[in-house]
Simulated assay, not measured.
Amino acid sequence: MEIGTRYGAITMPADLGERVQQQLAQADRAGPVVHHPRARRWTFITGPARPESLTKSVAAALFRLYATVACPGAQVVLPSADDERTGYRTWVHSPDSSDTIPPLESVIEALLQH
């Protein structure tokens, strides 16, 4: 999946991702999340990044939390059937037609509260 005008993504440690996912679910803002078990990281699929939302202070806070925002033009690899079977890459929350894609800013806000 290409990051750009339609989609964004943010990756963080799995333990932090669990807490962020719970908070987003409580606010009815949960969207698709990919788990990378070997790296122990979660990638949240979001709406696109708006340049004004990634200030220096926000970037510094994300850096301290080991969270990274995917740059426009980057590729996020989604779990395939083989990935799911082998556990290489799995869905924490798979996308379906009723899902909304949360704005990147909502995920960052939830992340910074932890």
Rank of each mutant, 00 (worst) to 15 (best):
G8N: 04
A27C: 10
S98L: 10
I101L: 05
R40L: 07
V69G: 00
I108V: 15
P13Y: 01
S106D: 09
Y66A: 13
R89V: 03
P102D: 05
R41S: 00
I101M: 03
T55V: 10
M12F: 01
R85T: 15
R19M: 11
I3L: 03
V77C: 11
T55C: 14
I3G: 00
Q26C: 03
T100D: 09
P13Q: 10
T90Y: 03
I101F: 02
Q22C: 05
L111I: 09
V69F: 01
Q26T: 05
I108E: 00
D82Q: 13
D83N: 13
P37F: 06
A81I: 09
E109S: 07
T86I: 07
P51I: 14
V77T: 15
L78Q: 01
M1T: 11
E84H: 14
Y66Q: 15
E105K: 11
A61C: 09
T86E: 12
E2T: 08
T100S: 12
E52C: 05
H36F: 13
P102A: 06
H93T: 08
F44D: 02
V77K: 03
P51L: 12
S94N: 08
F63R: 14
D15Y: 08
D82V: 10
T86W: 07
I3Y: 06
G47Q: 11
Y66S: 12
P72Y: 05
V92W: 02
V34M: 00
P95S: 07
A110N: 00
L24F: 04
S57C: 08
G8R: 01
L104K: 08
A110V: 03
R19S: 11
A25Y: 10
S57P: 07
I10S: 04
S106E: 12
G73L: 12
W42Q: 04
Q22D: 03
K56S: 14
T55Y: 12
I45T: 02
V33F: 03
A81H: 11
A67K: 01
S53D: 15
V33K: 01
V107C: 02
V77D: 04
A59I: 15
A49G: 12
D82E: 14
E18I: 02
R89D: 03
R50H: 12
G87M: 10
F63T: 15
I108R: 06
W42R: 01
R29Q: 14
T46W: 03
E105N: 12
R89Y: 02
R85F: 10
I3W: 04
A59Y: 07
Q22R: 05
H114A: 03
I10G: 03
V107T: 10
T11G: 06
G47N: 11
P37N: 09
S80V: 06
A9D: 02
G17D: 00
V20N: 05
P51S: 13
I3T: 09
R40G: 09
L54G: 06
A9L: 02
Y7H: 09
T5C: 10
I3V: 14
